[in-house]
C-alpha cells in the first residue's frame, strides 16, 4: 500500500488515541479549566487597580490579561499533551509506532494534532468567560480568533514534541518548561505591554514568536482599535503569517528530531 495512506492512518490513530486518553483522566480535564480561571481572577483583579496603559485608558487589566491567559491555556495544555511523548517512550508504546509503516513526519503530525485538539478544546472552554472580560459580539472576530488559536496550538505542540523527543524524563521536561516556555509566555506581552519594558526586555519581547499569539488574540477579541492602542504588530495578516511561520519551523524541527533519534 502507498506510503500516503499509511501516513494518514498513523496521524489518525495517534491523534484519536491522545484525545481518548485525555478524556479517561478527569483530573486533567478539570485541572486544565480551573487553573486558568484562578490565574485570571487572582492576578487579573490584583493588578486591576494599579494598571494604567497610556493611550488605552479604557482597558482594564482583567481585559488586558485575558488574551494572555488564553495563550497560557494553549501553552499549558500543549505542554501536558506532549509530555505523553515521554510517557509513550517509557512505556514502550512508541516502539510500535516507529516500527509501523507511517513516516516520521506522520508521527509528529499525529502527536501534534492530538495535542492541538486537546489544547483548543480547553481554550474554548475558557473562552466561555470572554463576556466577563468585556468581549462583545461587535468587537469579536471569530475567524481571526480561530486561526490564531489553531496556529498557536499547532506551533506550541510542535515545540513540545521537539523538546519532549530529547528529554528523558517528565521531570526534565518540567525544567525545560520553566526555563524556556514560561519565560517565553511572560515576555509575550501577556502580562505587561512591550512599550513599558526596558530596552533589553523590549528586544527579547520583540523577537518572541509567542507575542503574535497574544497580539492576534487581543485583536480578535477586542478589535483593531484596542490592538493598536496597546501596540505591537501592524495587522492581523502579520500576526497570522508570523504564527504560520512559527508553526512550520517547529514542525520541521520536530520532524528532524524524530528522524534523528529512534
Amino acid at each position: 500500500m502507498a506510503r500516503g495512506s499509511m501516513d494518514v492512518a498513523t496521524v489518525r490513530v495517534l491523534a484519536a488515541r491522545d484525545v481518548t486518553r485525555f478524556f479517561r483522566q478527569p483530573s486533567r480535564v478539570i485541572g486544565a479549566l480551573a487553573q486558568p480561571i484562578l490565574f485570571w481572577l487572582v492576578i487579573g483583579s490584583g493588578f486591576q487597580g494599579s494598571f494604567r496603559l497610556p493611550g488605552a485608558e479604557g482597558l482594564g487589566y482583567m481585559q488586558y490579561f485575558f488574551p494572555g491567559v488564553v495563550t497560557m491555556v494553549l501553552l499549558f495544555s500543549a505542554i501536558f499533551a506532549t509530555i505523553t511523548v515521554i510517557e509513550d517512550r517509557k512505556e514502550g508504546f512508541l516502539q510500535c509506532v516507529l516500527a509501523g509503516p507511517g513516516s516520521r513526519l506522520s508521527v509528529v503530525v499525529g502527536k501534534a494534532l492530538g495535542a492541538s485538539a486537546i489544547a483548543l478544546l480547553q481554550a474554548s472552554l475558557f473562552l466561555l468567560f470572554a463576556p466577563l472580560a468585556g468581549v462583545t459580539a461587535s468587537s469579536l472576530s471569530l475567524p481571526l480568533l480561530l486561526s490564531v488559536m489553531a496556529l498557536t496550538a499547532l506551533a506550541l505542540t510542535a515545540v513540545g514534541v521537539s523538546l519532549a523527543w530529547w528529554v528523558q524524563s517528565s521531570a526534565g521536561y518540567h525544567a525545560v518548561m520553566s526555563l524556556l516556555l514560561i519565560p517565553m509566555w511572560v515576555l509575550s506581552g501577556a502580562m505587561f505591554p512591550v512599550r513599558g519594558a526596558g530596552p533589553v526586555l523590549q528586544a527579547l519581547m520583540y523577537v518572541n514568536p509567542m507575542r503574535f499569539a497574544v497580539e492576534g488574540m487581543r485583536r480578535a477579541l477586542y478589535g483593531d482599535a484596542v490592538a493598536a492602542s496597546v501596540g505591537g504588530a501592524a495587522s492581523a495578516l502579520v500576526e497570522v503569517g508570523a504564527l504560520g511561520l512559527f508553526a512550520v519551523v517547529f514542525f520541521a524541527l520536530a520532524t528532524v528530531s524524530v528522524s534523528r533519534r529512534p
Partner: peptide, 28 residues
C-alpha cells in the same frame, strides 16, 4: 512486517480490544 518487542509496547490505558484495533488501524 509485524513486530513483537521484548519490552512491552501495549497502551496500558486502552483495553485489549482497543489495542488490537489501534494495531490494525495503524496499518491502514
Amino acid at each position: 512486517m509485524g513486530v513483537v518487542f521484548q519490552r512491552g509496547s501495549l497502551d496500558e490505558h486502552l483495553t485489549a480490544r482497543e489495542n488490537l484495533m489501534l494495531g490494525a488501524r495503524l496499518y491502514a
